[in-house]
């Protein structure tokens, strides 16, 4: 679905969204510490509106720290609607497995280390995305449900993200943040890509949110 640029979020609305996300991520960070026993630093998010076809290149430029990456995708469905992408550098699975201290022995003999590392990535993604999106929609007075997360790209060069993973011909609001697990050498990127379908509602919700402060 294509959409006229004027229907996208205005500069002011993007600023409000950024501020709201900042509050939401602060809360998410505090609660995450309780759930996974480690502090996750969520940097100040950036918000911008892009054409979906430009996303792969945008993402590839934004994550230039890592050459080989894995991407987890999870969609959220409410009035706030879109896709979350979590981008980890190659090898993060092993670090995350150590973080949880899960044992291979707990899962029966036919489960490989590689499967367990993948599962750790999926579980962390589910919790991180759940925390960040959950806190954002709480502030916007919405509720969302989530699809199961899945690894869409595994150990792939970052400059070759296939564009088929996105629906073309539409605009998206991209919310990007860098996260880092303190005391652990794990960091990555979170992109929330809201489809244009939720723009109208989002504009209203953002204005309602601002009214509390006016």
């Amino acid at each position: 679905m294509s959409i006229a640029a004027e229907q996208a979020l205005s500069r002011d609305e993007q600023d409000i969204l950024q501020e709201l996300m900042n509050i939401a991520f602060g809360r998410a960070s505090a609660d995450l510490a309780e759930v996974i026993d480690t502090y996750v630093v969520l940097n100040v998010p950036e918000v911008r509106t892009l054409k979906v076809v430009d996303l792969p290149e945008f993402i590839s430029t934004e994550i230039s720290d890592h050459d080989i990456i894995s991407i987890v995708e999870q969609s959220y469905l409410g009035r706030f609607k879109g896709v979350a992408l979590l981008i980890f550098p190659s090898g993060a699975g092993r670090e995350l497995l150590n973080l949880f201290g899960d044992n291979v022995e707990d899962y029966g003999e036919d489960v490989s280390m590689a499967a367990l590392e993948k599962e750790s990535i999926l579980e962390v993604s589910n919790i991180l995305i759940g925390a960040c999106v959950g806190k954002v929609v709480e502030l916007l007075d919405d509720e969302v449900s989530f699809s199961p997360p899945r690894i869409i790209i595994e150990d792939h060069p970052r400059n070759a993200i296939p564009c088929e993973i996105f629906e073309p011909n539409s605009l998206a609001t991209v919310m990007r943040t860098v996260f880092q697990f303190s005391d652990r050498n794990i960091s990555g990127y979170l992109f929330l890509i809201n489809s244009s379908e939720s723009f109208q509602w989002l504009k209203k919700a953002l204005n309602l949110f601002m009214e509390q402060y006016e």
Partner: peptide, 11 residues
């Protein structure tokens, strides 16, 4: 814990 805290889903 995560579902109680964030209202998300676990699979």
């Amino acid at each position: 814990k995560s579902v109680f805290k964030f209202g998300n889903f676990s699979f």
